[in-house]
């Protein structure tokens, strides 16, 4: 059914820390690796070794430069996957009921057996979180690794989405946002977690933690007193040379 649930029992999603993400793309690769051989159709590539390679990815990492009014520009790596919105526009536009949001945990999924590949859900998503697989002709999207997070055949530490499990800088966190004491809820509270494109009214579940303020270039180091130049004015032969060169 393509109606959205009025409420979900749990609100599973991700917190993405823009402060610690180093843009290594490990989450992109682990996501593709897990999801191409597990739940649903594989994530195909077209012309992967040719001159015009492209393929289906459920997670992509952009990089942005932010230039403040004063001071140096900052480079921010920006991973982007499905945000499992509470008011998901991709669900209600679906003509077949293939696109749905689960009542039990809020995960937005595609039932690939019902998908006709019309592409309207991808048009309705402001984040570019859905991609039509060119080989399979059905819509692919982040499943929040539903085949990992409940999978009792995996060791407990692996029961998180592949992107979270693999992140070497701990920039991705998985948890239940309906529980105010969960790690993700606490992170959002403490670090001022934000929505992206809030004006689109999608009420995304995934939250982004803004980069922490940088050290200012004008700030002096705590080591500064020990690092003062030994001799400001050259003396002796160098002093004579300095003055002599000035006069020429």
């Amino acid at each position: 059914m393509t109606d959205l649930p009025a409420s979900t029992t749990r609100k599973l999603g991700l917190v993405i820390d823009l402060d610690t993400c180093v843009g290594c793309q490990a989450c992109v690769i682990s996501c593709k690796g897990w999801n191409t051989e597990n739940h649903g159709a594989p994530l195909s590539d077209q012309d992967p070794y040719g001159p015009d390679p492209s393929g289906t990815f459920l997670n992509r990492v952009h990089s942005y430069e932010v230039q403040p009014d004063t001071g140096p520009a900052q480079l921010i790596h920006f991973p982007k996957s499905c945000l499992h919105c509470e008011n998901a526009p991709c669900v209600t536009v679906c003509p077949t009921g293939a696109s749905y949001k689960r009542t039990e945990d809020g995960v937005v999924l595609v039932n690939e057996k019902d998908c006709i590949g019309c592409g309207l859900c991808a048009w309705a998503c402001p984040y570019g979180a859905r991609e039509m697989d060119a080989a399979e002709g059905v819509m692919k999207k982040c499943t929040l690794c539903v085949d990992r997070i409940y999978n009792e055949n995996l060791p407990e530490e692996d029961r998180t989405p592949a992107c979270v499990r693999t992140c070497p800088s701990n920039a991705r966190h998985f948890g239940d946002f309906s529980d105010p004491e969960s790690q993700v809820s606490q992170l959002v509270r403490e670090r001022g977690g934000m929505d992206i494109m809030p004006e689109q009214g999608t009420q995304p579940v995934n939250k982004y933690l803004p980069p922490r303020p940088r050290d200012d270039w004008a700030d002096t180091s705590v080591l500064a007193p020990y690092l003062t130049p030994v001799a400001e004015e050259p003396r002796g032969f160098l002093g004579w040379l300095d003055k002599a060169l000035d006069k020429i």
């Binding site: 823009l18 992109v28 015009d52 390679p53 492209s54 393929g55 289906t56 990815f57 992509r60 990492v61 952009h62 990089s63 942005y64 430069e65 932010v66 230039q67 403040p68 009014d69 520009a73 900052q74 480079l75 921010i76 920006f78 982007k80 991808a122 402001p126 570019g128 991609e131 039509m132 060119a134 934000m194 929505d195 992206i196 494109m197 809030p198 004006e199 982004y208 803004p210 980069p211």
Partner: peptide, 25 residues
Amino acid sequence: GTATGLGGRGTVRAFEPPHTGSNYL
């Protein structure tokens, strides 16, 4: 700025796309 949530910190510019090739989007 609203798409990245970074608009309040300065002027945001797309520095590097996620992939060198094109994609469905």
